[in-house]
Amino acid sequence: MQATHPSSAPGGRPRLAATSRRLGERAIIGTLALAAGISVLVTVGIVIALLVPSIEFFAEISPAEFFGTATWAPLFEPPAFGVIPLIVGTLSTTLWACLICLPLGLGTAIYLSEYARPRVRQTVKPILEVLAGIPTVVLGYFALTVLTPTLRTLGWEVEIFNAFSAGVIIGVLLLPTVASLSEDAMTAVPRSLREGSFGLGANRFQVSTRVVVPAAISGIIASFVLAVSRAIGETTIVLLAAGQLARTSFWPGDSVMTMTAFIAGTGSGDVPTGSIEYKTIFAVGLTLFVITLILNIISIRLVRRFREVYE
């Protein structure tokens, strides 16, 4: 046996041992793992960078005061650290943004995926993508100098800085994201499902809403989640158009300060490192992060429960 089928080449190496060419493959695997590892490390690093000053902050200001009171004046004397007005301000602009971008984005996606002729789709999609490429600072000034004056001309006495204008323009900013991602999800639904429902005498609207949208719901919800997270985190537009007045008001015409506007506005001022004002920035940042995280977790749960998996 050993004589006719030697299991080893001279020198004791098994014949089927990997040759040196596999080194390249190892290097590739290593590089890819490193790439994945870096993004995880960066995330962990950010969380730690947020946590450390925040913990120091909460050592001085009790969480009960931070989350339980509704006066926000950390830079005044005497300071007040009730974050509720900032959360309300954020929710307010986010609400108007979502009211614009979710229904319009989904409607656009249904139109492009189910109704539009190929030529219309090929024209509309690039235009939408241009809209997504407008710098947010331009959109912020558009809200402040065009939309708000227009609202006033139309007879609605909004404040110069107001949640509504900022929210609407954030919605416009995010509309292409929602439309494009949802449309991708709907286009991926197999044609056989559409034909199956058309074959039963369903009309185009019924096919869209009862078959295509449910089958694409995980992609659609994913686009919504992304939009909501970005609306919460949007900074430039709210800083320019929603104002710097921290107050607990859901009225769309009122000026509000969002969490991001506080962070950006205060961070660009002269706050000494290590001071309580400095730590406040991180505490608010951590709050923002946790809110976004909770929203993401909830929506992933929702998607798991409601999605219809097609083959």
């Binding site: 197999p190 056989s192 499902l193 034909e195 199956g196 429902s197 058309f198 074959g199 039963l200 005498g201 369903a202 009309n203 078959v211 449910p214 089958a215 219809e308 998996v309 097609y310």
Partner: peptide, 19 residues
């Protein structure tokens, strides 16, 4: 649509809805 209500169709590959 009226036509397809009266003339049903079954396809090559089974295509049940994901419901």
């Amino acid at each position: 649509i009226e036509v397809r209500k009266r003339i049903g169709m079954v396809f090559q590959k089974p295509n049940p809805f994901p419901k």
